[in-house]
Design a protein around this nucleic acid. Structure first.
Length: 190
DNA sequence: TGTATGATCGCCT
DNA sequence: GGCGATCATACAG
């Protein structure tokens, strides 16, 4: 079994998918850019929303791979994830930052700021710039409004890894991935 | 350059 | 009732 989108098999462990997503272009209704930062969340580690089983919030992580999982964080921000691994397994990849490429003016308007570097540097900011909300939960990633484009095959992509950000459990897992040296990261790697 | 704080939803204890 | 895969603002140094 496999679910291939933009050259990536989403029926694979989340750390594998998270690494492969660096450099992929993500568009929502034609607005978006190049993915420069991701984090993996698996079902067997306590930092993950799917740890401890299915709830009304996280049900889409227990469905088919290659779909979206959108949840509300701290009551105000939306965060966008890609579901991976086999059906019913429960795992996901959090999108943490994009390099803005398409629809810059719309993103600036939605974010209420001009600085290109801060338009999508962080999961909440990214979702706001792309106008992602509950309506985008549990949607297939190979169907509109989502578009995923594989990076140019010739281009070398240098991926940095490190500990995940903003969590208190399983902090030691090096499951944050980023495009080395990008100025659009939510935080630099070191 | 760093640390504190408020906003305030959905789930879990 | 408390806390979190966050962010913007307000201060202190």
């Amino acid at each position: 079994m496999s679910k291939i989108i933009a050259g990536i098999d989403f029926e694979a462990p989340p750390d594998v998918v998270a690494r492969q997503l660096i450099g992929v272009t993500l568009l929502v209704d034609g607005v978006g850019g190049r993915i420069v930062e991701t984090e993996a969340y698996d079902r067997d580690e306590p930092a993950s929303h799917c740890y401890g089983g299915e709830t009304p919030r996280n049900f889409s992580m227990f469905g088919p791979a290659g779909r979206s999982y959108v949840y509300r964080s701290h009551g105000l921000h939306w965060c966008l994830n890609f579901v991976c691994r086999e059906n019913g397994h429960g795992a996901g990849v959090l999108l943490r930052a994009l390099e803005p490429v398409m629809g810059l003016d719309l993103m600036r308007e939605r974010r209420g700021m001009q600085d290109e570097r801060l338009l999508c540097a962080g999961p909440g900011r990214l979702a706001q710039a792309l106008a992602v909300s509950r309506a985008h939960n549990n949607l297939p990633l190979d169907v509109a409004p989502f578009v995923l484009l594989a990076p140019d095959p010739g281009v070398e992509i240098d991926v940095s890894t490190g500990p995940r950000i903003g969590i208190s459990k399983a902090v030691e897992l090096p499951w944050r991935f980023g495009l080395a040296g990008s100025r659009f990261l939510s935080k630099p790697f070191r």
